[in-house]
Design a protein around this nucleic acid. Structure first.
Lengths: 351, 351
DNA sequence: TTGTACGCGTTATCAA
DNA sequence: TTGATAACGCGTACAA
């Protein structure tokens, strides 16, 4: 027996397979990656040898030799935020059974952290990069532009894509709910926002635009914090908002967690929903339609964004860049009981 | 100028740095990985050259040469389940600023998928592996045992660790809540369960043990489904449970999402909580204490499990295997208004 | 369709 | 403490 090489961990290599199958190593390599370019007989022999030896290609060696890892780097600001959890789920599902792997990075809503992770990811020579939002730092943007691989910005759309983009306008989303509440008859519509990342800011801008258009805007109606969002924070912020403006008759919450907190707090304070106070959230998590009363929200296609982002990336990797480099997914206003102050709003279903 | 190598993407290599710093390539390599083994002067020169060139080591080459990637493979059954999202957050946080990277895999609660992902991960020669639960298939277990790297099983503890383990007893958790409800005076305590993965099964076993001990067990009180958990599913299952046993006076839900759905449905049906029906969840998400009324749950240290799992893995990688290979984190029963039927239960706070 | 020669960028080995 | 040399396992380029 030929002694094993000095360093190897003992796993069979492509050479072992080649020897066993009686072919050249490169043929094995091809049989694995482009089977159609190898004759059926050899393919068969090689498959047997692979099985017999339990051969698994070494991804590191492959990446080094081909100067490209079968990895898609994905940068999201949070892993616990349900919205991004669903985006990530869509991304994983969009992979199908390709040999591609996802490398996740959590930027914690920090531009600097995003830069750092980009550096790290780039050192792997990924096949593509997916990043969240459109507010990269100049340095991060430069990194992306010289990445030498397809780049997809997700969740938002804007005027100046690095490469590809898929998302929707958060400003329009914010405007749509606010307008809906105004039309439902609410006048003192408050805005409650946590975290206040760029997308939250734009929802606020939409809120403001709608309120100003109706001549209802008042800065005291706006209650925000940079603290991360949570149900309990919604409760607190609602109390703060009421303390500032006791005549508050509705709140548009930055997201559904806050809205849930507001609902509970309104229950506690015995404020009738929707007659005394209207509530709307953002994202339309499952619980919004189950809540009692059900809560108005804006349905955002986060899972689909993840799926499509991967589809776009895969197409670009394959050299088929999609015709539309910027995709606006839109959103959908889900008007429910929590804002049905008017007779034309939906009524609570009979029990 | 020496022409750049044929294939490289143009990025500077370690040789470039070595030339610029006037040292050997290996010295640069050492300066980067074990600075203390290089003289301060050279270290300084090398640092300057690295900065000047913008050198970033190629992870793929490093992994190939050292036969080990600085990657920790992490297998979880779900990314959207808040519980695992928090585990993952703990894992990322536990990384600190090591050079280690996390490679996430989603098994979708499937043993086969876990096997497949293990294969993929192993092909990268990870530095360590973290897997969820203790119910690996025999094939997966064999893979883990011959992985040649530290392995941490998380979320549960059991008698036969592959290597290391950190978690708690779901059976005891289920038993504790159930006992609490019985002590609060409930008699027809139902169990509502979604997904029914192994950990859910063990919580059910704990429920059953407590009910049988009190002579209250009745199979008709148990309502389960393999459908993934959600708030709306909680609503549905509660309706089903009530249809089966109209005298139901409490429900222990497999997790907090279901419990929230039950709460809303009880509200809808005008069933007073906790007098007509008691509710308990599992995991103690933030919303449980905010809910109105607040909901009894079992606090599980999922974030801490993630953090500690990484700590254990890092220690093992560094050759310092922890003294306790199996860590029981325990859990904490959070009794709240939703099960406070007895005067000794907590009262709702005054507004 | 298949094979040969070589390089990918780094680290392990061993000697100085 | 530092360096020369030889892998690491695979893919690219080119030839057959």
């Amino acid at each position: 027996m030929k002694p094993r090489s000095r360093r190897g961990g003992g796993r069979p290599t492509i050479a072992d397979v080649a020897r066993k199958a009686g072919v050249g190593a490169i043929t094995v390599s091809r049989a694995l990656r482009e089977p159609e370019r190898v004759s059926p007989e050899l393919r068969e022999q090689i498959a047997r040898a692979v099985d017999a030896l339990g051969y698994v290609p070494d991804r590191n060696a492959r990446a080094l030799a081909s100067a490209r890892a079968d990895v898609i780097g994905v940068l999201v600001p949070s892993l616990t935020n349900n919205v991004f959890a669903e985006v990530v789920r869509g991304i994983y599902d969009g992979l199908g059974d390709t040999h591609l792997q996802v490398q996740l990075g959590n930027t914690h809503y920090s531009g600097l952290e995003e830069e750092r992770l980009l550096q790290v990811f780039l050192s792997q020579k990924p096949s593509a990069l997916i990043v969240s939002g459109i507010d990269q730092t100049p340095a991060a943007r430069a990194l992306l532009e010289s990445a030498g691989c397809p780049v997809v910005q997700i969740m938002e759309i804007g005027p100046d894509p690095v490469d590809m983009m898929i998302g929707f306008s958060h400003l329009e989303g914010g405007r749509a709910v606010t307008r809906h509440m105004i039309e439902a008859g609410y006048r003192k519509v408050g805005f409650i926002g946590a975290r206040m990342d760029p997308r939250s800011q734009r929802r606020l801008a939409g809120y403001r635009a709608a309120m100003e258009a109706a001549g209802l805007y008042d800065v005291r109606l706006v209650t925000t914090t940079t603290t991360p969002s949570s149900v309990s924070l919604g409760q607190e912020l609602f109390r703060d908002a009421l303390a500032k403006v006791p005549t508050l008759d509705a709140v548009f919450c930055n997201n559904d967690d806050l809205a849930l907190g507001v609902l509970f707090e309104a229950n506690r304070a015995a404020l009738a929903i929707p007659s005394k106070v209207g509530i709307a959230g953002f994202n339309d998590l499952d619980m919004m339609h189950v809540a009692f009363p059900s809560i108005t929200s804006v349905r955002t296609p986060r899972y689909e964004i993840g799926r499509q982002a991967i589809a776009m990336a895969r197409a670009a990797i394959a050299g088929k860049r999609p015709a539309d480099l910027v995709v606006d997914t839109g959103f959908e206003l889900m008007a429910r009981e929590s804002t049905a102050r008017h007779p034309d709003g939906r009524r609570p279903p009979a029990p």
